[in-house]
């Protein structure tokens, strides 16, 4: 197909799609006037029911916790697929020189590693209290580790994130989510992902019941997934000729 035909075909189909899009938008509520009852009820119920202050986390890890389990499994599957595609018998072990040569960049970058990791852990730990959560904090923590490579040495980065540990952490993060869910059936005796832990005092770190646990294990899963993906791509770069 020549580019011109392709573009013409796209023009026609995009026009049709745009019409459907506009038609669908006319059925949506006016911007700023959304009246969804589900969200409104959750906003007023999450605090008293689950003792959390961040309702988004309550939705993610409790009210729609089963969806998040699906998301975790998807994350796990995608990361495994990346590893399966890229982690093959690599020929040669040519290690390229570290990318950073400037001492200033190295010093500032390495200085930022600690604060970045601490900030990531902070965001993850307070996920059910303030804006943030396991997913966001996990990514921030992983980026701190990646900074170790970007500003420092490849060897230091490898030493800080051994592959077996990261693989283990990834599996543990997703597996614990399922275990906590099953605990709702076995211990709680009612439903999958039913809360089985003391709800605690609202507004403190010891609150939220299973939300706190699921938040933490999601953070672990996401952080190790990011590091694992980065690992695989970096290995490609290092062994490429």
């Amino acid at each position: 197909m020549s580019p011109r035909v392709r573009l013409g075909l796209f023009g026609v189909s995009a026009a049709v799609l745009a019409c459907l899009f506009v038609w669908a938008l006319t059925g949506l509520p006016q911007f700023g006037a959304f009246q969804g009852e589900y969200g409104r009820i959750l906003n007023s119920a999450a605090g008293p029911e689950r003792h959390v202050t961040n309702v988004v986390s309550a939705v993610t890890f409790d009210y729609r916790g089963f969806d998040t389990l699906g998301e975790e499994v998807l994350l796990f599957t995608a990361v495994m697929a990346v590893a399966l595609l890229l982690r093959e018998a690599r020929s040669g072990d040519e290690r390229r020189a570290d990318a950073v040569r400037s001492d200033v960049v190295r010093a500032v970058g390495l200085f930022a590693v600690g604060p970045t990791v601490v900030m990531g852990l902070y965001v993850a730990a307070h996920g059910y209290l303030t804006p943030g959560g396991g997913f966001q904090g996990g990514v921030a923590t992983a980026s701190g580790l990646v900074l170790l490579y970007a500003a420092g040495r490849y060897r230091a980065y490898r030493a800080a994130s051994p592959k077996t540990l990261i693989d283990f952490a990834e599996g543990t993060g997703v597996g614990t989510y399922v275990v906590v869910g099953l605990a709702g059936i076995v211990v709680g005796g009612s439903a999958f992902l039913e809360n089985v832990v003391e709800l605690g005092v609202k507004g403190t770190l010891a609150s939220g019941g299973t939300i706190a646990i699921l938040n933490a294990v999601s953070g672990l899963a996401v952080a190790s997934a990011c590091v694992l993906i980065f690992h695989e791509f970096l290995e490609e770069l290092m062994t490429a000729k």
């Binding site: 959304f34 969804g36 589900y38 969200g39 409104r40 959750l42 906003n43 999450a46 309702v55 988004v56 309550a58 939705v59 993610t60 729609r64 969806d67 998040t68 998301e71 998807l74 994350l75 959560g133 997913f135 966001q136 996401v222």
Partner: peptide
């Protein structure tokens, strides 16, 4: 507050 459900959906969306 604004709707929390779509925000949780967006979070899922970003990760995926």
């Amino acid at each position: 507050a604004v709707d929390p459900v779509v925000q949780a959906l967006t979070l899922t969306d970003v990760v995926v």
